[in-house]
Design a protein around this nucleic acid. Structure first.
Lengths: 248, 248
DNA sequence: ATTTACGTTTCATCATATGAAACAAAAATA
DNA sequence: TATTTTTGTTTCATATGATGAAACGTAAAT
């Protein structure tokens, strides 16, 4: 939102509209107008354009908009070759089979993290981790792994996010990051969700850049701190192996 | 480009650029400019906007553009029904609105075909196509589309059906199938019902397997052969798009 | 019957997208 | 090495086209 670069406003707005559909899968014109804070007249014009090109379509009965066929088509053409979510899926499944716990893959996206892949534990009580979920960076093992190993600049950017809740002290958070950098992995015990714990390690690509965070998570009853710690070496080794598969 | 609707040019162009990535998964600035026939200056500005929002990203080494993480995210939020009859309904309605003719969706089911979805034309004289109807495979455009693009094994199985009437020569039928495979669509003129004609194209899922057949049908008076032929390119394009929505 | 909400269209105004040109930097050529 | 070509980036004057207020039509809701 905060400008700076050389951009095209109309396009920027249209893309904002598309992104509304990551929160609700079906929206009316006025809902969209409210969401992006634009006059319905403007939104209507933009929607016509998006619809004409097939990026959104209208539900015949409810008249609401939803994502269109062209999004399907584009998603089918995401580079399968070096898309980490697909590339690393087999490795994740292998790790899941070894530990029988839910394994997730996250990337930094702005001031949030995005779960780009997940494989579920087969156990009856398990963490359910939907792919595509967008989560805050101030809680969770994966968050800490991602922030701890990103650049100074990026860390400052993330920590300066006004969204950051007062309950989370930035100084304490920074202290944690130092520990995490030192030992190479992060843990969380009921930080984001009641009864859920998790260990996470960073994945660096071949060029040494932070590419993602890999986490193993489950119910506290099955994954107490000692267990998380015992899984850490294997997790870090797998994360290192996976990094070898990513060009950058 | 030459449509006369109420559209926003800058957005239209940006979307065209995104769609370039359905043809090549990685493109340089000048390649894109050539593809969409715009000055590189304009494309550069649009790319900056798209990149800023995460709809495209640049390969660190080659400097080329590729689809970005936001496309990933949007695709993760696409309606997650895997029932083709529901999934493809909006697309079928759109096609119906474009042509104002009845649009149907068929799948192979043993030695028959099954109409799993249909949307009716709004015209007074129209084909009425009930969902759930089970029909023979030896007549009708959809039948021929389904058989022509199924596997050798399956074709033999279907053609060896004793139900096959003597009036339909299997040799002639095989010849027709060859033509259909070559041009990509099938037609029928009063084959199954008096006064009814139809064009049909196969739908392949993301793995390339035959998933269904899409047909447009109506009264002979309104849909003579020339009209059917003129609808074929649009039909095939829509069928291709729909296939992008089916995992397999 | 009246009000409220929503989608759509129109239109005068000026913000803004545009593309030519110039620029820098890197390949490709000699 | 010098020279040419190619590619990405920035600048800027211009008019084109995006904008949003207002008005309209229609359908729900009261």
């Amino acid at each position: 939102m905060e400008d700076g670069k050389l951009k095209v406003r109309a396009v920027d707005r249209a893309l904002d509209i598309l992104l509304c559909f990551t929160r609700k899968e079906s929206l009316s014109l006025t809902e969209i107008a409210g969401e992006v804070e634009l006059h319905k007249s403007t939104v209507h014009r933009l929607m016509t354009t998006l619809e004409e090109k097939g990026f959104v379509s209208r539900d015949a009965s409810t008249e609401k908009y939803r994502l269109g066929i062209k999004i399907w088509e584009l998603s089918a053409h995401l580079s399968n070759t070096d898309d980490p979510a697909l590339l690393l899926l087999p490795s994740m499944e292998k790790l899941r089979d070894e530990l029988d716990e839910t394994v997730s893959l996250y990337v930094l996206d702005g001031r949030e993290r995005l779960r780009i892949q997940a494989v579920q534990s087969n156990q009856a009580i398990r963490r359910v981790a939907p792919v595509g979920a967008r989560l805050p960076l101030y809680v969770g093992a994966s968050s800490k792994a991602l922030v701890a190993f990103s650049s100074e600049r990026e860390q400052e950017h993330i920590l300066s996010d006004p969204i950051w809740p007062d309950s989370v002290s930035r100084t304490a958070f920074r202290d944690q990051l130092r520990v995490i950098r030192a030992r190479g992995y992060a843990m969380s015990v009921e930080e984001r969700e009641q009864g859920a714990t998790s260990v996470a390690a960073p994945i660096f690509d071949l060029k040494g850049n932070l590419a993602a965070a890999l986490s193993v998570s489950g119910p506290l009853a099955r994954l107490p701190v000692e267990k998380l710690e015992s899984y850490a070496p294997l997790l870090m080794e797998r994360a290192r192996e996976m990094g070898m598969m990513i060009r950058g």
